[in-house]
Structures are given as structure tokens and as C-alpha cells.
Design a protein around this nucleic acid. Structure first.
Lengths: 171, 171
DNA sequence: CAATGACATGTCAAGATTGACATATAGACG
DNA sequence: CGTCTATATGTCAATCTTGACATGTCATTG
């Protein structure tokens, strides 16, 4: 399971609350691995029981602050050396295979929506890219992930524009 | 759920057996939506019970041949008009965020493996691209999906090469 | 004719994921 | 002081997904 390793990995940088982890996931990790609070909280309880993270104190409003233990970080490193699961699941990408079931006009609507979504997301990532120079090792790794997103999105936009011209030709 | 719509969608083109669907998934749809036979067979039984597909006869070795019903195809079209779930999950992409926990040499090993995997996959997709000119509407839609894969992979390769130079600089 | 591999279908338990339900606190604003 | 929003944590049933177990057929090859 990737979620547990991602949680420990974030906590290896600095202590956080479950809620803080949730927000962090929503802002960046969710592009690669979405996770809801109903997954995060029980998983934190399991990691705590297994000694991969520890509770270091309490924040406001009953918040529980966690940090990674040495065992936890070792487990993340072990995970990083294993072969990644290359399976990727994308509802939007799957739908492309079935565009022929729609008339060209409707297919174009779908592709235009995709293109617009990619553009919005690209603008968002470009904003993040511009906002701060990476300095720490963690920031440099995040920057690599960010640039991956930027290049992927630019390719997707180029693709969507080409695909739109294709379906126009179907009419 | 996307699986049921993908199954009906494939059967909307031509009748197939469960095993035939499995093989078809492994060859193309799995890049967007992996599915194992233990998911496909029970789902076909449900689609049959709901009248979204029908059984049209039997092949060799007890094979059961299915095709999509009008209701099934309508359901796929309805699905294609709904807003896609944009969530994407990628174990390999997630790991990038935690490369700072490895030393630069190990991070480079990971990125080089990613690059090589992308290159292999790209060669495979380029082979498919060259092998036949799309003629039917279904083939044209599949070609759009294929080109999406090609552009995405070329961007990923460019990214991996850049990222490798980055982690070299970490040393 | 026996072995092997591809074809072919199914079940099941364990684990992962989602979306809803549930509750409570702290700060800001009128 | 009341309301609203963001913070904060938790549970649970339903559904989806995985990997293993289980079984049998057909064609090829030695």
C-alpha cells in the first residue's frame, strides 16, 4: 500500500497533524495519490500502533501531532527501493476509447473540456513553480514532481488540441 | 464505476467472450483502466442480469459470447456525457515526492528505471501506431488514445532525463 | 499419447477506497 | 451573543480491487 508510505514520508520532513496531512495531500500529493480524511485517520492509528510514527504532542482543537520514527523512515526507504506498481487508472483517459460512440460534436465538447481542465491546472502549477526557489532536499524533490506535472500537462494540452482537430474532421 | 461502461463499450463494437475482453483490456484499455479476470467475469454477470449486455452464443471450450444491448450502449453514451472523475493514481509518480529520502545515487537509479520503462513502452506504442491506418470510427478513437499515450510518454522521457541531471547535481 | 501452454470461466477472502454520518472547537464578523 | 467557516477527528457501510484458489478444454509438440 502506498498511502502509509506517503504519510510517513511527509512526516519524515516535519511533524504534522492528521488534518495537516490531509491538506498537504490535497495540495500536492493528490495529483499522484488522492486520499480522504476517512482513509488518513485510521491509517495514522495503524502506523502509530506499528511504531512507524509517534505522537509528539497536541495542537489546538484536539489536534494530534505526529512525526515519523526511525523505523518509519527506514520503511519508506525500503519501499522506495522496491519496484513501483506501474498501473495507472484514469477515468478521463479511459473515455477516449469510447468517443466513437458519441457524435463528433459531443466528442469535441468532451475534448474541449479536457483541454480547458488541463490549461487551468497548468496555470495553477506554473503559479506554484514561480512562487519559491527550491532550497531543501525535500523542496528539490517536490520540484522534480512539479516539473513532471508541468511537462505532462503541456503534452496533454497539445494532444487535446490535436484531438479536437481530428474529431472536427469526423463530421 | 468505469469498468462496467468500458465492458459495454467494447462489446458495442463487436461481440466478445469474457476472455476476449480480458485480452483486449490487457492490450490497450489497461493503460487507462487495468482490470483482472476476477473483476470482469462477475461484472459481466451483473451487466447480463441488468440487460445492458446479452449472451449471443457459445464459442469453443465453454466460452460465452456477449454483445451490448441498445440499453447498454445508451448507458455508455449517458456515462460519456457525465463529468469524468479526474482523480489519477500513480504509485511511481507518488514516489518522486520522497526521492529526497534516498541518497542521490539511489534516486538516480529510480529515475533511470523510470526513463527506461517509458522508452520501452514508447517503442511498443510506436510499433502499434505504425502497424495499421485507422479506418473505422472505433479505430479513430483508439488512435486518439494512442497518440495521447505517445505524447505523454515523450514528455515523461524528457522529464526523466532532466530529473536525472538534477539529482546528479545533488551530489 | 503425454505434457505443455493458451484458452476459458468462475469464486472468495482480504484489503483499499469512497461517501456519508457524526461531533466538537476556535476565530471572525455583525 | 449568534452564526458561519475552517479546523480537527473519528466511524461505518457499501463498493471496488487484488491475488489466490479452483477447474476444465483444445491444440501443438515431442
Amino acid at each position: 500500500m502506498s498511502l502509509r508510505h506517503a504519510l510517513i514520508g511527509v512526516l519524515a520532513d516535519e511533524p504534522r497533524t492528521g488534518y495537516g496531512l490531509l491538506k498537504h495531500f490535497q495540495q500536492s500529493l493528490a495529483y499522484a495519490w488522492p486520499a480522504s480524511h476517512s482513509q488518513i485517520y485510521p491509517e495514522l492509528a495503524r502506523l502509530l500502533a506499528e511504531g512507524l510514527i509517534r505522537e509528539t504532542g497536541a495542537g489546538a482543537r484536539g489536534a494530534r501531532v505526529y512525526e515519523a520514527t526511525t523505523e518509519g523512515v527506514d520503511e519508506v526507504r525500503r519501499w522506495l527501493r522496491t519496484d513501483p506498481d506501474r498501473r495507472v487508472r484514469s477515468d478521463a483517459a479511459l473515455r477516449i476509447f469510447f468517443l466513437w460512440l458519441l457524435d463528433p460534436g459531443e466528442a469535441a465538447v468532451f475534448l474541449a473540456a479536457e483541454r480547458d481542465r488541463f490549461r487551468t491546472l497548468l496555470a495553477e502549477l506554473e503559479r506554484i513553480e514561480a512562487e519559491e526557489e527550491p532550497r531543501t532536499p525535500k523542496q528539490r524533490a517536490y520540484r522534480i514532481a512539479l516539473v513532471g506535472g508541468l511537462l505532462a500537462l503541456r503534452a496533454r494540452i497539445e494532444w487535446a488540441e490535436w484531438a479536437l482537430r481530428e474529431v472536427e474532421a469526423w463530421r
